[in-house]
Structure formats: structure tokens, C-alpha cells
Write a protein that binds this DNA or RNA. Sequence first.
DNA 1: TCAAATTACGAAAACGATTAAGTAAAATAA
DNA 2: TTATTTTACTTAATCGTTTTCGTAATTTGA
Lengths: 335, 335
Amino acid sequence: MVSVKDIAAACHVSVATVSKALNDYSDISEKTRTLVKAKAAEMGYLPNMAAVALKTSRTYNIGILFVDGANSGLKHEFFARVLQGIKSQAESQGYCITFITNRIGDKEVSYKEYCRNRQFDGVIIACIDFNDPQVLELVNTGIPLVTIDHVFNNTMAITSDNVKGIRDLMEYLYEMGHRKIAYIHGGDSSVTQARVTSFYQCAERFGLNIPSEYVMECEYHDIEESAHCTEKLLDLKDRPTCILYPDDYTAIGGINLIKNRGLSIPDDISVVGYDGISYAEIHEPSITTLKQEAEEMGSQAVAHLIDLIERPKTTLKEQIVVQGAVLIGNSVKKN
Amino acid sequence: MVSVKDIAAACHVSVATVSKALNDYSDISEKTRTLVKAKAAEMGYLPNMAAVALKTSRTYNIGILFVDGANSGLKHEFFARVLQGIKSQAESQGYCITFITNRIGDKEVSYKEYCRNRQFDGVIIACIDFNDPQVLELVNTGIPLVTIDHVFNNTMAITSDNVKGIRDLMEYLYEMGHRKIAYIHGGDSSVTQARVTSFYQCAERFGLNIPSEYVMECEYHDIEESAHCTEKLLDLKDRPTCILYPDDYTAIGGINLIKNRGLSIPDDISVVGYDGISYAEIHEPSITTLKQEAEEMGSQAVAHLIDLIERPKTTLKEQIVVQGAVLIGNSVKKN
DNA sequence: TCAAATTACGAAAACGATTAAGTAAAATAA
DNA sequence: TTATTTTACTTAATCGTTTTCGTAATTTGA
């Protein structure tokens, strides 16, 4: 392994000079700087990151908190795409990403301890129980941090525009002539809250009457529960003409139930998903949904996190909102 | 940040003693060992991994080469599940995982250089172009390494049993009375080769006549190409009664085309996928497929890699074969 | 022409751990 | 009793960098 020492010997200068030359210090002459850099390249020098980290406390390593719950995790395409965005943006900025876990060797540690131990320059939190006390503890350490789809007090966050997302869908549905719209929304979270609030606002704006039976809760990604909720809606005396689902996956659960009841989509009833996963497009009928820019969210998270790491003074901890767009499929009928 | 030095001061011993006590060296008395460990725990000591890495060249960090091609990558549920298996097994053994990329700072480097720079203890290669010269170079560095779904000369590999997978499917189809079976197989790779070979072997064993038009190639995950191939099969004078697809995703492409031609599944024609992604189960009709134990493959990869890292002498570089199983859906008719 | 400022480099300490080698004290052997 | 071994530590070097401080040599200013 070639080290600064070897380069120093080859150039007949000291290791200090080599280090400074490589890091573009101003007290090195142009001549030696180019000499050192040329030799370094020629000898295939790469800095030992452990030594750099030890000396500077910078690892160029970003920790990612991504918990694989039963219903979601990496298997969920939305999060897979967020991760992909994170990965490629980090790569393009010369950082690497590592999953945060709960173990160091054979010892259980908290997320905070884990991050301290691995000395991450920054942390991205996504797809997780934001009420977990360990997450709270991590957030309060002061480490540069970006959350995805959740806003803590005074931290930087990347969120999708859930208010606008639901509004766009509602406007589309209204234009398509729907007046009796049911909303099966996801489990309690800030995302759900924003969507539900937006739903009611739109309903009011359009002068729609939303009976309380039209709104119910279903865990995200839980296909059986969504079928069950759908069943209840179909059994209503005054059936909705369209059902909004928490996500595309649960929409499929609903669609299957509707079909099994001998009804057809969209002729008998319209359905709308959320997320814009690839199956929404290839499903027959294709599902009208709100396509979230998941990769964009991931890459924005990394870009802003690196700002926070490299320019902590001038970077303000803002809340970045990423827009999605209605992806029109064949699951909504023109009434 | 509390270091060995602080513990040494608190215990009135030298830093060497602290280090040895924490690492269970034999030349430390029981008394001081427990004292040191107690103090370390009390003070919340965690080793600085950079220092450990610098001194011992061990990082407890595994590099993962996972390239996100256009058609696959993390968005593919199979690989997402492999990754999940990797992640959880690594966590349970106290290692962390980091994606291998091509950049260090603002400099393009090869995979090999990247791994050297980050000093990964070992590497897992999955979901990638195994003919990439950079991958070859990495494989030949001698770093502990496990490949997934590909066997290099003399490296450890985790593969799914593609021969048995196809055989199990073929046996099932034969039992269901199918004799005219078409196989749209994936693009060139060792996985495809094993499957195609197994397909022909089974055909021979069952005395099936497979006209050459029944076998064609379609890129994995390419839904349009699979629809196109399906069309050709439907246009044949002597239509197959069942079509095998490269994966579940392409099977859906085929199914959609078949339905659009006014045919019904499985009554008019049967289809079979491969992988066992979640959509195969919730699709209507549910798709009969070979469910691969993707998570198992990931966790086996990590377990064996760690063996290789920690016991290089006694661990032999074998090829581990993980079995899948036929997941029976409603896409195959009893003939 | 001589002092002051600038330029370009080197010596050495430091980061936080590990570990080989050395050494007193205690235990055992002869 | 004395020599030898064992026990339980400590000293100090080391890993590969970065960075402070010092200092010759050169340039500039008056």
C-alpha cells in the first residue's frame, strides 16, 4: 500500500509537504505541488480513510436509518427508489452510505451510539417509526441530519407535497365528474395527517358532502385490511363512485375485492392509488395514482445533507418539498 | 468522546492495560479486567473505529457491489430482498454494510481501488454485469469475497438452484397435463444457462417435443419485449399450452398481452413466472412461480463471507446452493 | 544596504487505538 | 536460601495522516 511516506521519498520532500501538496495548501510552490501530484497518481496513491478519519474526524460516510418493518422496508418500491436516489447522489458527491444498525460487535447499542462509533458525517432518516425514543435521541445529538417524509422541530426535512398531491388527485376526480369520493387513508403519521387534511379541504372547496363512513383508516401496504375496508364501502347504501387508497399496493387489494364482487373497474367504481410504483402502470387496468418523485427525494436529501456537513454556518435547516404528479391510468371513469 | 485514555485515568492503570482488558487478553487479572470493563460501560466508552481500523486494518465493514442498471437494481424486489437479507445478517453479526461506488471525493476510481481505500473486510457482489473488467479486477485482488447468482473460478458463491427450480416447475406442469411448453428465457448469464439447460433436460426426460419456436430470449424485467415474444407464440399454428417467463415481471407483460388478445388465463393458456415477488401473489390471477429465497441468499452470503474473513484458513470456498419452491397460483390450468 | 515581510518547506506532535518487548513483584522450584 | 518461572502490569512504538509551529531563503521596502 503506497502512503504519503513513499511519495515523500520518491519526491525527496517531507511527508508534510506531500500532504499539503495533495490538499492544495497555499504554502507549497506550484512546482512541487505538480510534482507530488504526478508522483501520487503514478504510484497509485489513495489516502487511507481510517487515518484521515482519525485525524480529521471526517469519514465521508453517511449513515442511513432505514428500518425494515414487516409491511414496508426495502421491499417497498417507494423506499427502494428513495434509497436509489440517495445512493447515486452520494456517489456523485464522493460520499458513501452505510446502514445504521443496533449492534457493534456483539454489543447492542443505540442508534446514536452507533453513529458516534462509526463517525458518520451525517445521517438520513427514512422509513421508520419516528416516535421511537432512540430516533429522538439521535435527532437531538446535533449531528447533521435530514429526515424524509417527517418534520422534526428544527431539522432539515425532505417531504413530498402531500397536500398538493391529494389536491391534484381531487381536482382530477372532480373534473372527471366524481362527487361521491371515499378515502381509505393510511395509519397515523404526519404524512397521513397532511393528506387527510387536504382531502377535507378539497371536499369543502368543491362543496362535496363526505359522509363519515366514506373515510376510514387502513395500515399502509396492508392488502387484506384494504380489501376489508373496500368491502364496507361497497356495502353502503349510498356507495361512493370513487375510492382513494393509501398507496398503490392497497389499491390493488381493493381492486381485487371489487372484481371478486363482480364489479368492474372503472365502469362500476373508480379507484385511485398513491406513490406511482411500477405495478400501478402495468396493472390492468392501470391505476391512476400520484407518482411521487422518490429518487428525487433521496438525492435531495443527500445534497442538502452534504450542504449541512460542509457549510454548517450558511446552510439553513429548511423543509424541502418535492412535488409529485398525477399519473393518469384507466382506473377512473368519466362520470 | 471518552477514549481508552480516560478510562485509564479513571482506573489508575495504563492505556495498554485498558485495551487488553477490553479485548480479553490473558495477561490481565480478573480484578482489573472487571474494573476496566465496568468503568468503560459506566463512562459510555465506544472504540473509535477509525483508530481500530488504522491499527488493525479491520473495519467490520462489508462492501456491497450492487449496480442499478436500467432494468433492475434495487427497484427489483428480488434484489431488494437479497439486500434485506444481507443487511439483517450483517447487523446480527456486528458488521455494517456500505455500497461500493466509483468515486472517492471528486476522483473516479475502480471498484478495487474503492475497496482498498475504504478497507472493507470483505465484499459481496450481486446484481451486476459479471463481465465488467473492473469486477474481474476486484475478484482477483484476493479480498474475501462472495458472489450471488454467479460463480467465478474458485470464489465463494451463493446461487439459487436454477436447475432444480426449472425442474420443479416442469414437473408441476407435466403433472398438470401440459405437453406443449414454451420457454421465454432471460438474457445471457450463468443463471439463464442453467435454467435453459434444465428446461431441455426435463423436456427430454418427459419425452416432450419442443419446437425451436417455443424457445426465445427476452431481457429480464423487460415487459415490452416479453409481450412481443408472447405475441409471436400466440401467432404460432401450433400454440403452446403454457409459457414460462424469465421472471414474474415479464410474466405480467405476457399476461396483459394475452388478455388483450381476448384470451383468458389459465383457461386458454397457462403462464408461469419466476422469483416469487409479492405481486405474483396478489395479481389476479395469482401467478404460479418459483419462489426464490432471496433473503436467505443474502444472509447466507454474509454468514459465509464473515467465515472467510474471520477464519480464512479453515473456510473453504464452496458454492452454496439455496433452494426455492414452486408457489402455486391460479395461472396454470389442469389439462 | 539592511530590516521586514514573504515564500516554501520541514520537524514533530497529534488523532485513538493495538501490541511487542520489557520489568518489577509474586509464586514456585531446587 | 537462591534461581527460575509466572503473573500482571507499563513503556513505547506504531498505523497513515494532518496541522501547528519554526526556520532558512528569498523578496520587498525604505
